[in-house]
């Protein structure tokens, strides 16, 4: 965990130093050759776009490929799963695993693969275009896309938690009175998606506490960390982008800080989308594990 955080901070910080140094270089060049200043700005933008935004682009690619993998995996194993549910008979009725929930969770992944992530990349491109060529701004469009996506994802997670509560499993500790201050802390301090995060973590936790009776806590911890790792990475990177934009604001020009800020926001929304994917992954993995256990016990 620690080396991962260090590597992320290293990449983003080094690109932040690149922004500072290149801004200084451009200032000196503008002073020496004022007639070339428009082009120097343009090339500065190029440098920022290729060097600094590479981590963000990579995160988008990673989440996209994970989503595609999970969607294909689900489509290929779903007939098998339903067949084994039928074969195992009534033993599922005592558990809180509705096949409809599985279908819903993975349908969300397919939705994310087909609609949400393309829309998010469109928002990113709109941001870049409107900063690169301020005469043709698409900022409102990008904001609209982001808020729509966030609303859609929040609605899906709310539906998850409704389904799981209807199943009536044991509530997880995050919903207890003791953890209320932590939830409030996350809600206040993570911009845009704070309350969404506590909701979805609560939903996942509620679900896996029901499952831990059957498969043991260590497996749940493993599945959790595997599924949530990309999400956490994305969240951290988004934070670092916004932080960088805040630090360099006094001396970099406005286009670059605005671009970094926008990319940070987009990464937050990407983090929300990847929560959906993580949830579907956790649900499918636990479902499969419990199914295998049931079948082996029955024999």
């Amino acid at each position: 965990m620690i080396p991962m955080i260090e590597s992320i901070i290293g990449t983003v910080l080094s690109s932040f130093i690149v922004v500072i140094i290149s801004t200084f270089m451009v200032l000196v060049l503008d002073f020496l050759f004022p007639s070339y200043s428009r082009w120097t700005r343009m090339f500065l933008f190029f440098i920022v776009l290729t060097v600094v935004l590479l981590p963000a682009f990579e995160h988008l690619q990673i989440i996209r490929s994970i989503t595609q993998t999970i969607a294909t995996m689900f489509i290929s194993i779903y007939p098998l799963l339903t067949a084994s549910i039928l074969a195992s008979g009534g033993s599922f009725s005592m558990l809180n695993f509705q096949p409809a929930m599985l279908l819903f969770a993975n349908g969300a992944v397919i939705l994310a693969d087909k609609i949400l992530i393309p829309l998010l990349s469109a928002a990113m491109l709109f941001d870049i275009v409107s900063r690169f060529h301020p005469a043709v701004p698409f900022t409102k469009m990008a904001d609209l896309l982001r808020t729509t996506l966030l609303g859609l994802v929040s609605a899906l997670v709310a539906a998850y938690s409704i389904f799981i509560t209807a199943g009536g499993t044991i509530s997880w500790a995050l919903n207890g009175v003791t953890s209320e201050p932590i939830k409030e802390l996350i809600r206040q301090n993570v911009p845009l998606i704070g309350s969404f995060m506590t909701d979805s973590l609560g939903a996942i936790g509620r679900y896996s506490s029901g499952a831990s009776v059957f498969i043991g806590a260590w497996l749940i911890v493993t599945i959790w960390s595997v599924a949530l790792l990309p999400t956490m990475k994305t969240l951290l990177t988004g934070f670092l982008y916004r932080w960088t934009a805040a630090i360099i604001e006094p001396f970099a020009n406005e286009e670059i800080t605005g671009l970094l800020d926008d990319i940070g926001k987009t990464l937050f929304v990407l983090c929300a989308v990847s929560f959906l994917v993580a949830f579907a992954f956790i649900y499918t993995a636990l479902f499969t594990v419990i199914l295998v256990k049931l079948i082996t016990v029955a024999k």
Binding site: I17, I21, M25, Y36, W39, F43
Partner: peptide, 28 residues
């Protein structure tokens, strides 16, 4: 000297930017 000063920047960019600015200056 200027290029050495900005050597920490990722490889081709500092050289390219300074070189193109000087080229432009001589031409102008």
């Amino acid at each position: 000297t200027f290029m050495q000063l900005f050597a920490p920047l990722p490889d081709p960019y500092a050289k390219l930017l300074i070189g193109s600015v000087f080229l432009f200056y001589f031409s102008e």
